[in-house]
Design a protein around this nucleic acid. Sequence first.
DNA 1: AATGAATGAGAGTTCATTCAT
DNA 2: TATGAATGAACTCTCATTCAT
Lengths: 199, 199, 199, 199
Amino acid sequence: MAMTQPASTYEQHRHDAIRAAAAVFADKGYHGSSTRDIAERLGIKQGSLYYYFKSKEEALVEVCLYAMRDYVQHMEAITASDQPFEAKLLATITSHVSKYREQNGAMKVYHTERLYLPEAKREKLYRLGSGYRQKLETIFDDAVRHGDLRPDLDCHFATQMVIGTCNAWGELIARDPDIDLFDVIRKCADLLSNGFIRK
Amino acid sequence: MAMTQPASTYEQHRHDAIRAAAAVFADKGYHGSSTRDIAERLGIKQGSLYYYFKSKEEALVEVCLYAMRDYVQHMEAITASDQPFEAKLLATITSHVSKYREQNGAMKVYHTERLYLPEAKREKLYRLGSGYRQKLETIFDDAVRHGDLRPDLDCHFATQMVIGTCNAWGELIARDPDIDLFDVIRKCADLLSNGFIRK
Amino acid sequence: MAMTQPASTYEQHRHDAIRAAAAVFADKGYHGSSTRDIAERLGIKQGSLYYYFKSKEEALVEVCLYAMRDYVQHMEAITASDQPFEAKLLATITSHVSKYREQNGAMKVYHTERLYLPEAKREKLYRLGSGYRQKLETIFDDAVRHGDLRPDLDCHFATQMVIGTCNAWGELIARDPDIDLFDVIRKCADLLSNGFIRK
Amino acid sequence: MAMTQPASTYEQHRHDAIRAAAAVFADKGYHGSSTRDIAERLGIKQGSLYYYFKSKEEALVEVCLYAMRDYVQHMEAITASDQPFEAKLLATITSHVSKYREQNGAMKVYHTERLYLPEAKREKLYRLGSGYRQKLETIFDDAVRHGDLRPDLDCHFATQMVIGTCNAWGELIARDPDIDLFDVIRKCADLLSNGFIRK
DNA sequence: AATGAATGAGAGTTCATTCAT
DNA sequence: TATGAATGAACTCTCATTCAT
C-alpha cells in the first residue's frame, strides 16, 4: 500500500528539488545560498532550476510547506488519542524534535528562514502552523482541568515553552549528528514535567 | 561615577556603527543585509562605513563581541555569589533573556549569524562564550551535591536546556515588544525549577 | 589542411574575449583597464565577461598564455634548423618582433603586465617562456664553438641583448603602425651582428 | 659649495614626496599604486599628500620631470665633448643605464607610465626629452661623416637602437640589484660597436 | 603643515532571472 | 526536459579627492 501519491516524474523531480533546496538553505541560510548551489546539489544546471520553481523565493516557500507536512496532523492525532498527559507530551516532543533530523533540514529552514518571506506568504504559512500551537495548548488545558498539572499553570506560556525548547534542541541535534536523539527527548520531557528541583 | 569610558570621538562613532550593524543584522540577517543598509541607519554614505570596519565580516565580528561583552562576567558574578539555587537560576535567566532586548539585537545576531563566520573567527568567539556554559554547569553541579536538585539530574543537559530556553524566549521577546519581559523570566524560572506537573 | 582547431562556439567566443582583453590591456595597462572596457570591446555587457573568465586576473593569465603560444616552439624550430648563425638570428628577430604586431598586443601585455600577477601564476608563465632564452643561448654557444662569432662573446649577455632589443623595437612598432616591420628586422639583425663600427 | 638650491623646507619635503611617488609607481605601476601607498612610504597620512600634489596625476608628471632632470644636459655635455665615438657611446650608455638605479626608479616610471598621461602633458614631457634623441643622433651623424662608422649606417635607427637597448637593460638592472652595472655597460657598448660576428 | 573624516564615483564580482534552442 | 548564454541589478570594497580643523 503506497503511502505517497504515485507521482508523475515531474512531481518526483520537483520533490527532489525541494529537498535539495532544504539542505542548502539549512546549511547556508536562505540569503547565503545561491540558486547555483541548489542546482549543483541536484546535479542540474542553474537555469534548469526554474523549471521547478519560478523563483528562489518560491523554493523557500516550498521548503517551508514541506516542513509543515504532517506536522499539524501529527499534533491532532496526539490530541485525539486517549493517553495521559505525560505520554502526550513525550509524543509531542518526539514528533517535533525528530523532525529536525528529517526532510533534509526543512524544519530548521522553516524555523529560521521563514521570516525572510514577504508578509503575505509568511502569514499563510503561519496560519498553517498555528493550529499546532492551539492543539498543544488544549492538551495543557485539559490536563490542568483534569488535575494532572499545577492549577496555576499558564497554559499559553507552557505551550510556547515546549515549542521553544523543542526548537532549541532541534537546532542542536541538527548540527551535531552524534547527539542521541531519544536521550534528548526523554530528558527533555522529564525535565519539563518535573523540573530540576528535588521533590 | 562614570558609567562609560571617556572614549575618543572615533571610538564613539565606531560604537554607533557597531550598534547600527547589530540592528540591521538582527532584522535581516547577515547575508540579507547590505552595507548600504547599515550606513543608511547610521546616516552616512555606504563607502564611509569602511572607515569603521575594514569589511562587512569585521562588522559581524564586532557585533558578536559586543553581544558577548559582560556576558561571561555576569555569569561569573552569579556563580560566585552566595545565593540559593533558585535565586541563581533566576539571575541567570534574567541576565540572558534581558540581553535580547538590549544592544540593538546583538545577542540575536550572535546566536543566529555567528555560524557564517569563517572557522577561525568563529572559534575565537566560541572560546570567549564557552566559559558561560561551564560556569552555569557548576551551579547545577553544586546544587545537586548540596541536595537542592534531583540527584539523577544530568547537569550538562540541564545547562543546555536553560541556555536553549533562554535563547528561544529571547527570540520571541526580541520580535514582539509587547511581551512582558519579567513575566517571562519569572515563569520560565519557575517552570524549569518545578515542572508542569502537580506535586 | 585545417589551420585552426574546429572549436566549439564557447571556445571561439572565449578566444574572442581573450583577444579583446589583450587589446585593452595593451592599450591601457592591466590596472588601467576595467572589465567594462573589455566587455564593451567585445560587444557584451560587463557581467557577461564572467561567463568567460572567472576574474580579471584570469583574463590576464589567458592573454599571457596566448602571447606565449607557438613562441617557444618557434624558437625550437629555429634552433633545430640547419642554417648559418645569421639566418637563425634573423629568424629569431623576425619571429619575436613580428609578434608585437600580432595577437592584438598580447605580447606587449605579456612583457609589461605579467609582473602584476601573483607570484605563483607568474612563476608558471615564466617556466613556459624560459625555454625560449635557453634555446636562443644555445644558438650563440654553437656559433661561438663553430668559429662564427667572437670567441670572447658572453653568450648569456648576448641572448639578453637580443631579447631586450626585440622587446624595445616591439614596443615601438606596436605603438606606431607606420613603422616598416621588415626594415626594422633587417637593420636590427645587421647591427647586432656587425655593430656600428666600420671594419 | 652646495650643488642644489638651499631649498625651503616645503621644497625639500616636496622633493621627498616626488621620490616616494617614484618608488611606488616604479614598483606597482601608476594605476596599481594608491595615493595611500605613496603617503605611507612618506610616513604621512593620505590626505596630506595633497599638500604637495594637487592630484595623483600631477605626482606622475613630477616624477617624470624628475627623471628627465639633467638627462638632456648630460647628453649635451657628451655631444660637446671632444672624444672619439666609442668614448661618447660609452658615456651615453653609462649615463642612461645608471639612471635606472638612481632617483628611486623615476626613470623606469618615465619610460613605462608616461603613456598614461593625457595627451597634452605627455606632449610637454616628450618635447623635453626629444632633445636627447636628437643630440645622440648627431653623434652618429658626425661619426659617420668622420669615417668612424659604417657609411651605410641608418643613424636614426642606430639612435633608437641605443636608446631601446639602454631601456631594456635598465629594466633588468632596476629589477635585479645583483646585476653588475658596469659590466653591463661595457659589454653593451662593445656589442653595439662591434657586433657579435668575428671579424 | 598635517590630519581625521567623509564622500562619490567606480571598480570587480555575484546572482536571480530569462529565453532561444 | 534541460541547457548555454546573456543580462541587469545589486553587492562589497577601493580610491582620489575635499575640507574643516
